[in-house]
Amino acid sequence: MLKQQPASAPIRVLVVDDSSFMRNAITRHIQRDTHFRVIDTATNGREAVAKAEQLKPDVITMDVEMPEMNGIDALRQILAKSNIPVIMVSSQTEAGAKTTIQALQLGAMDFIPKAGGFEQLHEKLHAVVGATRARLRPQVVKPSLSAPRRAMPMRARIAKPQLVVIGSSTGGPRALCQVLEVLPKNFPAPIVIAQHMPPQFTAAMAKWLSDVCAIKVVEAADDMALQPGVAYVGPGGMQFRLVNGKAKIAAAQGESLYKPSVDVLADSAAAAYGGNVLAIMLTGMGNDGAKGFNKLKEGGAHVMAQDQATSSVWGMPRAVAESGCADEVLPVGEIGKRIKAMFGLA
């Protein structure tokens, strides 16, 4: 079990990497913030499994490629014995991205790329530890936000939306899979997705989702026409908009800290589709998408948010729920079924 700490105690981190340079670099960066303390390091997966069991850290950063036992096998063993959250540290290559997506499938909470990912590390460590501790203690949440709301009656104007917009971040890949795998190949509308990820990783995620789901999932490209039965994932490091029934992919111009941004995508959906939209916010830290989803709601869109109990991090869906624009707050396992019902596919 995750070791309970007083509120003032530093978050205890185990750093796992076979490179002494990377171990030292990650340790130095983490300990710049006094809210964290690196309690030990490990040089391979076998050491990581043993030290995780012995030291019971609050969170682990895990390299992927290591001798004796790689990060994927170590992740499997750690999660089989504990609920310690793990953040993968990945190379930003095609192979590294594919392995990272596999780790997220298995239960890693999040990841950072080795190149340029350290600036988000403290925020991600805080988020995954906070979310894990929240799940271990009794939830004291407003019933209207923590429990699924009664299914809303379908109004004629939104009976069959022309578009589905999905936003997600931490924990998003697994949540997206749980939602999309329920949908049939002949799903009658396009689906557009803004998942917070760096370049390379969104392409690997789209390929994995397409392999396991009946619908086709692709990484969106500029000027790609949106087709029913296809889910389009915004490419990492870029902004994803919708214009005249096509995907518009462009370099960020300071619109948001997030690339792709849910707010940017939702704003463009509101302009292009008005209220004929089903908007869904899945797990993720922060509040990206809350403003865009409110704009969609004002135009007549139907809005769903994932509930706290099934979210890896209840940040983005919480922001949507607490803003008052969510028509329904549902467990992730019910969202795909609800989409089918709205489209008359149940």
Rank of each mutant, 00 (worst) to 15 (best):
L75P: 01
V38Q: 05
T170F: 06
A250Y: 03
P85Q: 10
K56R: 14
M1N: 03
L180W: 05
L136H: 07
I280S: 06
A326H: 03
V192G: 03
I26S: 03
Q120G: 08
A290W: 05
P260A: 12
L278T: 10
G117E: 09
A271G: 06
A189F: 10
A250H: 09
A305T: 08
A159C: 04
G324T: 11
L296V: 09
A127Q: 13
I280R: 06
A225P: 12
R76N: 07
R149W: 00
T43R: 10
N186K: 12
K98N: 15
F187W: 13
L296P: 04
G336I: 04
L226D: 03
D222N: 15
V277A: 07
A50P: 00
G229C: 09
V329I: 14
T27M: 03
D110T: 03
E123G: 12
S144K: 08
V38E: 01
K337H: 14
P184L: 09
F343V: 07
A134H: 06
A74L: 08
I193P: 05
F240C: 02
L125N: 09
P331W: 01
I249W: 06
V329N: 03
Y258C: 09
D110Q: 04
S168I: 07
M109H: 10
K337N: 13
M224W: 01
A250F: 07
K216P: 00
K246S: 06
S261Y: 08
A203K: 14
G96Y: 07
E219A: 12
K340N: 12
T41G: 11
R155F: 08
T41N: 14
A319S: 15
P161C: 09
G299C: 12
G274D: 13
E181Q: 15
M197G: 08
A247F: 02
R46M: 10
M109K: 13
P57Q: 11
M88K: 02
K51Q: 00
G171M: 06
A305H: 01
K81E: 02
